[in-house]
Amino acid sequence: MTNEPAMPESWRHYEDLGLSKPLAAALEAFVEQGYHGASIRDIAARAGLSVPGLYHHYPSKQALLVGLTTVVMGELLERSRAAEIEAGPDPSDRFDAVIESLLRFHMFRREQSFIASSELRSMEPEGRASYIAQRDEQQKQVDRIILDGVRAGEFDAEYPVDASRAVVTMCVAVAQWYRPDGELSPEELVERYLGIARCTVGAKRVGK
Rank of each mutant, 00 (worst) to 15 (best):
M1V: 02
T2F: 09
N3A: 10
M7N: 05
M7S: 06
E9M: 08
S10F: 08
R12I: 10
S20L: 00
S20D: 05
K21V: 02
L23G: 12
A24R: 15
A24N: 13
A26V: 14
A26N: 10
V31I: 12
Y35G: 13
A38M: 02
A38Y: 12
A38Q: 04
I43N: 06
A44T: 04
A44V: 01
A47S: 05
G48D: 11
S50C: 00
V51F: 06
V51W: 07
V51L: 09
P52T: 13
P52V: 14
P52I: 13
P52L: 09
G53Y: 10
L54F: 06
L54I: 00
Y55C: 04
Y55R: 13
H56D: 04
Y58G: 03
Y58W: 08
Y58Q: 09
P59L: 00
S60K: 11
Q62L: 13
L64Q: 11
V66C: 03
V71Q: 14
V72C: 07
M73Q: 15
G74R: 06
E75L: 03
L77C: 14
R79Y: 07
R79G: 01
S80H: 07
R81C: 04
A82I: 04
A83M: 02
I85A: 02
I85Y: 00
E86H: 11
E86Q: 08
G88D: 10
P89G: 13
D90E: 04
P91V: 06
S92D: 13
D93M: 05
D93Q: 02
D96P: 07
D96L: 00
I99M: 00
I99V: 09
I99K: 03
E100K: 00
S101G: 08
S101Y: 08
F105I: 02
F108L: 09
R109P: 11
E111F: 02
E111C: 10
E111A: 08
Q112R: 11
I115A: 05
I115F: 02
S118F: 14
R121Q: 07
M123G: 02
M123R: 12
E126V: 14
S130F: 14
I132G: 12
R135K: 14
D136H: 15
E137V: 05
Q138S: 15
V142T: 14
L147R: 06
G149M: 04
G149Y: 08
A152Y: 02
A152G: 09
G153E: 01
E154Q: 01
D156S: 11
D156C: 07
P160W: 04
A163F: 14
R165C: 13
V167E: 04
C171T: 14
C171D: 08
A173S: 15
V174L: 14
W177I: 13
Y178D: 08
R179P: 11
P180A: 07
D181G: 02
E183V: 03
E187A: 12
E188T: 01
V190P: 07
V190G: 07
E191M: 03
Y193E: 04
G195A: 11
R198W: 00
C199I: 10
C199H: 11
V201F: 02
V201H: 05
G202Y: 03
G202L: 01
K204F: 14
R205Q: 03
R205H: 11
V206H: 08
K208T: 10
K208C: 13
